[in-house]
Simulated scan of single mutants.
Amino acid sequence: MRIGIVCGYSFDVPGGVQFHVRDLAEHLIATGHDVSVLAPAEDATPVPDYLVPAGRTVALPYNGSVARLNFGPVAAARTRRWLEEGDFDVLHLHEPITPSLSMLALWIANGPIVGTFHTAMDRSRALQVASPLVRPLLEKIGGRIAVSEEARRTVVEHLGGDAVVVPNGVFVDRFADAPRAEAWCGTDERPTVAFLGRLDEARKGLPVLAEAIPQVLAQVPGARFLVAGRGDVTEYRSTLGHLGDAVTFLGPVSDAEKESLLASADVYVAPHTGGESFGIVLVEAMSAGAHVVASDIPAFRAVLDGGRYGTLFPTGDAAALAAALVPALRDRGASRSVVEAAREGVRRFDWSVVTREVLAVYEMVTASGAHVREDPRSSTVVGRLRAALDGRTEVEQ
Rank of each mutant, 00 (worst) to 15 (best):
V382I: 14
G15M: 03
H94L: 05
A41R: 06
V395Y: 00
G64H: 11
I108R: 03
T355V: 15
P40C: 13
R68K: 10
V164I: 12
A370E: 12
A151Q: 05
A109Y: 08
N70C: 15
G316C: 09
R392H: 09
V147W: 06
T119S: 13
S295H: 09
L240P: 04
P327V: 06
V338R: 06
V283S: 06
Q215L: 14
L127D: 03
T116H: 03
P48H: 13
Q215D: 10
V220Y: 10
G64I: 13
A285C: 04
D12Q: 07
R180G: 08
T154W: 00
L51G: 11
E235I: 11
R152V: 08
Y362T: 04
D173N: 14
V90W: 01
G142H: 00
A322T: 05
S295R: 04
D375A: 08
R392C: 05
S368F: 02
V52S: 07
L304Y: 04
A183G: 01
F88P: 04
P327F: 01
V339M: 11
Q397W: 10
F175G: 04
R332E: 09
H94F: 10
G55I: 05
V165M: 05
V346I: 13
R347I: 02
A194H: 01
C7I: 01
R22H: 10
N63K: 02
R153F: 00
G383C: 06
P53N: 10
A323Y: 02
A126T: 13
L325P: 12
P252Q: 03
A76G: 11
A151H: 04
G310L: 10
V339Y: 06
A30P: 07
D232G: 05
Y268S: 06
L262T: 04
R81D: 09
H27R: 15
H291E: 15
V293R: 03
E149N: 11
D255I: 13
A223L: 10
S100K: 03
D390R: 14
V129W: 15
I29C: 11
T57Q: 08
P53L: 11
E139A: 14
T116V: 07
G72V: 05
R190P: 00
L83T: 01
E26V: 05
V216G: 06
C7K: 01
A320F: 02
V283G: 07
F195A: 00
E344W: 12
S277N: 01
Q397K: 03
P136E: 07
A360K: 14
V339P: 07
